[in-house]
Structures are given as C-alpha cells and as structure tokens.
C-alpha cells in the first residue's frame, strides 16, 4: 500500500512543467462534482462514523468537532 501511495505521487513530481491548465480551461474543474470534497455532509458523517469505530483519524483537514465516542 505504501508503494501504491508513492506511485500515486509520481505524476506529481514528474513532468512538472506540463502540469496545470490555462485560466480559460477550468470549466470542468469548477464543477461541484470536481471539488475535493463535493459533499460536506457525506464527508462529515463518514469522518464521525469511522472515528468512532477505528483507531485512525484525520488526513483531509484539521479542525472540527470533538466527540466522546472514541
């Protein structure tokens, strides 16, 4: 899995000069469905559920409510 993660970083560190778009090419990126967190509620509930059932937490953002469930 760690190798998978490192592999996923590869496109980011290679060919840096060709990354990105011109300002007028952002039509698709501006869509709601293309946001990093397209639905805040789904994300909030998932974080809450898995925080209460598993040992791991975090990764996407800092801040947010605490809970006595774990």
């Amino acid at each position: 899995m760690r190798i998978l993660f490192l592999l996923s970083l590869l496109p980011f560190f290679s060919a840096c000069s060709s990354l990105g778009v011109e300002p007028w090419e952002r039509d698709l990126l501006a869509r709601d469905s293309m946001q990093l967190v397209p639905d805040v509620m789904d994300n909030y509930f998932d974080e809450h559920i898995y925080f209460s059932k598993e040992a791991s937490t975090g990764g996407q953002a800092v801040g947010g409510g605490g809970c006595g469930c774990n």
Binding site: L9, L19, L29, M34
Partner: peptide
C-alpha cells in the same frame, strides 16, 4: 495540484 483540465491531485501530511 491541477494536473490537467480533467484531473486534480491533493497530498496532505498530518501530525497530531
């Protein structure tokens, strides 16, 4: 990072 017109990439490191 915007990789291209159709792809967005994010990487975070967290310390708690």
């Amino acid at each position: 990072q915007v990789l291209n017109r159709k792809t967005l990439f994010q990487a975070n490191y967290s310390y708690s």
